[in-house]
């Protein structure tokens, strides 16, 4: 058992500042996670050179791997810091902010693009209202189980971080968004407006930008079958393309 944990943190004071590395040493105890190590630095913000410094800033909320907030790159792998257990990591534990999003400060990045892309993809049911309109549609346990898998996407961005097609200067929306298109197109009510989402998917940045690297499905902490989602939406695109062609032809 080690009696210390060594952290190497990539620090950056703001989006336009130069990054630098700072090392910290915190006491080891059993079942520590990366968050607990960062908390220990807050209680004693002294770096490994013995200099007083400020504690690194990171994004966090639930610490139960269900909100997606504390996503960062840990020893080269993008994941949530809460479920990254020290006992399963080699030291020094290297912490870096995600690279596909602008840095806010230290380990905090601005993932607002993810939510903007959910707007683009119309990832919702077009509800008539929240007043009483009776029961929802019946559907099978199989459809529920399939939808539930995609519904667990916490917009953490792991699948985007590892995607060779996704980047700050590129249009591709990535697997998370395509997974949400699949989620809503699988719902009996959502299916009624499926073509609106498929139209978005047919545009630049849509599904044709997927390079089929399949990194997304391996990186997803919730084991969402993202590649199945992409191929599912791909199949829907065929039908949509045909419908679109026929509609256009009938107007000629």
């Amino acid at each position: 058992m080690p009696d210390k944990v060594i952290l190497r943190v990539k620090r950056q004071a703001g989006p336009h500042e130069q990054p630098h590395w700072e090392d910290f040493e915190v006491p080891y105890s059993e079942r520590l996670n990366v968050i607990a190590c960062l908390q220990a630095v807050q209680r004693n913000p002294v770096n490994r050179m013995g200099q007083r410094t400020s504690a690194p800033v990171w994004d966090q909320c639930c610490l139960e791997e269900v909100c997606g907030a504390c996503t960062m790159i840990i020893n080269g792998v993008v994941r949530q810091a809460c479920s990254a257990l020290v006992d399963e990591l080699t030291q020094p534990i290297v912490l870096e902010p995600m690279s596909k999003f602008p840095v806010v400060k230290d380990l905090v990045v601005d993932r607002s693009r993810l939510f903007e892309d959910l707007v683009k993809a119309k990832a919702w049911i077009s509800l008539d209202g929240t007043h009483n309109l009776g029961t929802g549609p019946k559907y099978s346990q199989e459809v529920q189980q399939l939808r539930y898998q995609f519904a667990r996407c916490m917009s953490c961005g792991c699948c985007l971080e590892v995607c060779p097609q996704y980047g700050q200067e590129r249009a591709f929306v990535g697997a998370a968004i395509i997974g949400q298109v699949n989620l809503f197109n699988l719902h009996p009510t959502g299916r009624m407006t499926a073509d609106e989402r498929l139209e978005v998917m047919s545009q630049p940045g849509g599904i044709t930008d997927c390079g089929n690297a399949q990194n997304c499905v391996r990186a997803c902490p919730k084991e969402i079958p993202l590649t199945e989602g992409i191929s599912g939406v791909g199949r829907q695109m065929v039908g949509y393309g045909l419908r679109k062609f026929l509609t256009r032809s009938s107007k000629l």
Partner: peptide, 17 residues
């Protein structure tokens, strides 16, 4: 019912309720 209409993937019975 409202949440179900919004698409919450509630677990179902064999009949789909």
């Amino acid at each position: 019912y409202m949440l179900d209409r919004m698409g919450v993937p509630f677990n179902r019975t064999p009949e789909g309720n």
